[in-house]
């Protein structure tokens, strides 16, 4: 007898028949369980949302009026025939892997994740399961992240050099997650930390929910750059070449992304510096996470899916590609991921 899978992959997204809910759906459905607040996972138009208490404030900020319920990490909810719990994914503050258990069979949808502790997000927690749904944004062995402290030293060194040369340092980063992580890595003794409106809005939401962030100054349209010599400005990549940015006079631009590991991509961005830092797992992080779940069945949703899946199959897993509309870390499309 074949039983219905705990999670299935449908046109609307990942679906649980036993609980009649979707995980990170990309079309409007009645009940959506959301892993984290990035726009490709948390979309507008769902009847009801369920997310971690820590993820909800940003989701409300971004989606406006929504019907949403919060859940604590580790808290177990019964939804229909499914037992559901949320566990830290280490991707951005509030991000979660969603564990779904039906009749003793356990599936985990991990959304986006990274296994190293960034000191800001709740640290990744491996969840044992039978079926694991993973991303593979950086699922190639050429992606290998260095320690956060090493990258912090590179960024602070560059900022200090910009300051010494009388230039403003512009660092491009997504406004949710990456920007706040970078802010905590900066050395405030070098100079003032300014933020683009989109970044500061997220900062405000996070501060209100009790997440400690260093002091930042909102750099809106009325800012007088002269009053902040030696500043670093954290802004979405799309804002870096705008008229707003040009107001700051002599400047250098840096990008902080896992994609900066590839020289060709670094050069195409034509910034002055690329810093290799990502909120997604690198090659060894992906493999480590998968091993820790002890799952035998792996579903690869986005990234280098074909290659990563082949590698898993060659090494004893049962893996398959599952096409989704998740985007992973994009360098170019606005500020989301």
């Amino acid at each position: 007898m074949t039983r219905t899978p705990v999670l299935t992959f449908t046109e609307n997204g990942i679906y649980c028949p036993a609980g009649d809910f979707y995980i990170d759906p990309w079309r409007p459905v009645d009940r959506a369980l959301i892993t984290h607040g990035h726009a490709d996972h948390s979309r507008w138009g769902m009847g009801r949302y369920l997310a971690t208490h820590a993820a909800l404030p940003v989701m409300r900020h971004r989606l406006g009026e929504i019907t949403a319920d919060g859940i604590a990490y580790g808290e177990v909810r019964q939804i229909g025939g499914a037992k559901v719990s949320y566990h830290p994914a280490g991707h951005v503050p509030g991000s979660a892997q969603i564990r779904v258990e039906v009749d003793g069979e356990i599936w985990v949808a991990s959304g986006d994740y990274k296994v190293v502790d960034d000191g800001l997000s709740e640290a990744f927690e491996p969840v044992r399961c039978h079926h694991f749904i993973t991303e593979s944004t950086f699922g190639l062995p050429v992606f290998r992240w260095e320690d956060q402290a090493t990258i912090a030293a590179q960024i602070n060194g560059w900022w200090a050099a910009c300051k010494a040369a009388g230039k403003t340092a512009f660092l491009g980063a997504y406004s949710l997650g990456k920007a706040q992580r970078l802010i905590t890595m900066l050395d405030p003794d070098i100079g003032p930390i300014l933020t683009h409106t989109a970044v500061e809005n997220t900062n405000r939401v996070m501060r209100e929910q009790g997440i400690a962030l260093p002091d930042t100054v909102l750099a809106d349209a009325d800012i007088k750059p002269k009053e902040y010599p030696g500043a670093i400005v954290i802004a979405p990549p799309s804002a870096l070449s705008s008229a707003w940015a040009r107001k700051f006079g002599p400047q250098e631009t840096g990008f902080a992304s896992g994609w900066m590991a590839v020289r060709g991509i670094r050069r195409r961005r034509a910034g002055d510096r690329g810093f290799i830092i990502s909120d997604h797992a690198d090659w060894s992080g992906l493999l480590e996470a998968i091993k820790l779940t002890e799952a035998e069945n792996i579903y690869v949703t986005h990234g280098y899916t074909d290659i990563f899946t082949r590698y898993l199959n060659d090494n004893g897993w049962q893996a398959q590609v599952v096409p989704t509309q998740f985007e992973g870390e994009t360098l170019d499309q606005g500020e989301e991921a």
């Binding site: 190639l140 062995p141 050429v142 992606f143 290998r144 590991a261 590839v262 020289r263 060709g264 280098y304 290659i307 082949r310 590698y311 060659d314």
Partner: peptide
Amino acid sequence: ADVPLWLFEDSYAIVGDLAETIALV
């Protein structure tokens, strides 16, 4: 690097530069 040759070659195809692919893996 302890990766199969096909995976190295696939990575090379994406990075686009042999010297860089080796340095990275």
